[in-house]
Computed example of a mutant assay.
Amino acid sequence: MSPATPPTSAPPDLYGRERGDRMMRTLTVLGRLHTEAVARSGRRRARSGSPLAAAAPAGPLALVVRERVVEAEDVVSLRLTAPAGGRLPGWQPGAHLALRLPSGRQRHYSLCGDPEDRYTYRIAIRRLAAGGGGSIEMHDELPVGARLTTAGPRNAFPFAAEPAVLFLAGGIGITPILPMVRQAARAGLDWRLVHVGRTRASLPFGAELTELAGPGGRSAGRFEVRADDEVGLPDCAELLRRAPAGAAVYCCGPAPMLAGVRAAMAASPATGLHVERFAPAPVRDGRPFELRLRRSGIDLAVPADRPALDVLREAVPDTAYSCRQGFCGVCRVRVLAGEVEHRDLRLTDDERAEGTMLVCVSRAAEGERLDLDL
């Protein structure tokens, strides 16, 4: 996501276009403030030892596989609970679990159940024969009763519940989208969902989504399946034409789909795009630089190929972050000295001039040192 040439000013939205709807601008600002407030309050609770902090797991959270369900061709869902069946940490649509598998592998899986169910997590996994082995282990070596560990839910793809929403899901990319659809249906939002994939048989959760879309003819307008073997490969510009004017788009799927949607956004009726990314985007044109944590007196070396956030979190584990793509502003820090190479798409010129930096994507020139108010 980091551009080869850092932007010199913060565009009004992700694509540099003026937002045509004042309500959408207001919702975007409120969503950012809410996300930042939640992240910061979580850090305060964790430090204060409040009852909420005590309820959160102090270490790895143990989970047990309680149920396995075949959801589609090569897709199985797992229902996970606490070993003793107690309440689990809460989550919001878009959240995922970083699971430690019995083999020692760590894999990220979106939560695709119902956030109102505080006793069960549900994930779904597509079997990838040519993958890194994690999906095969999840399919073949995790029977009911198997145990996993996680640090708990984390959300890098939060749903802001805008009044008008277009959801685009590619294959197993439906997993973070499904809870968003459930929330949109409960809230009475103006929503549409298009689920694309190779075949209908390869796409999970069709019955649940049809039920959420509503009975009779209403479901045809809310929820659409486009299978490649029936209608050909999807055209992202054509998919985006389904967006209501001023809608937000939430998209999760394979990299070519995400790239196609980004490229087609400028000509679409939508005004904002949110995409899923578990891992940070690769650093492009990075150069090594240093961070000095002024209050703690710690110096940190940031290699050319790593984000400053990753290095900072090794020294300060409770550093807040969310999107890791330069959108949300949760990871902002104050820079006391040094010249920042801004790569975010959030901060205004005034915020940058006042010494604010988003450490998830922004950097410094080779050999430069940034003094942070930490």
Rank of each mutant, 00 (worst) to 15 (best):
A187I: 07
A365M: 07
M23A: 15
M138Y: 06
D74M: 10
A281S: 12
R284I: 12
R182N: 07
R218C: 05
L88N: 00
A207C: 10
D140M: 14
D74C: 11
E67T: 05
G221L: 07
H274A: 12
A53M: 02
L63F: 00
R262S: 13
S48Q: 12
E366P: 09
T150K: 01
D114S: 09
P288S: 10
R107P: 10
R242I: 05
A72Y: 01
A4K: 07
A301S: 03
L345S: 11
L61S: 01
L370F: 09
A259H: 05
G286I: 04
E141R: 15
Y321W: 00
P256F: 10
E230P: 09
D117A: 10
G94L: 04
D13P: 12
V316F: 14
Y119L: 08
E368T: 08
G260S: 04
D305A: 09
V196K: 01
A308W: 08
P317K: 12
C251M: 11
A304I: 03
L14A: 13
V330R: 00
G49P: 01
V38C: 08
A124G: 12
P234I: 09
R192W: 00
P60A: 15
G197E: 14
R284S: 10
A130D: 15
G214E: 11
V144D: 12
A39E: 13
L258D: 04
C331G: 03
S296N: 01
R346C: 15
G171N: 02
D349K: 14
R334Q: 12
E137I: 00
S110P: 00
A255F: 00
R32I: 05
R369I: 15
C112G: 07
A10T: 15
S2M: 11
R346N: 15
V194C: 11
P158W: 09
L80P: 08
L166M: 06
R242F: 07
M257W: 10
P303V: 06
R79I: 13
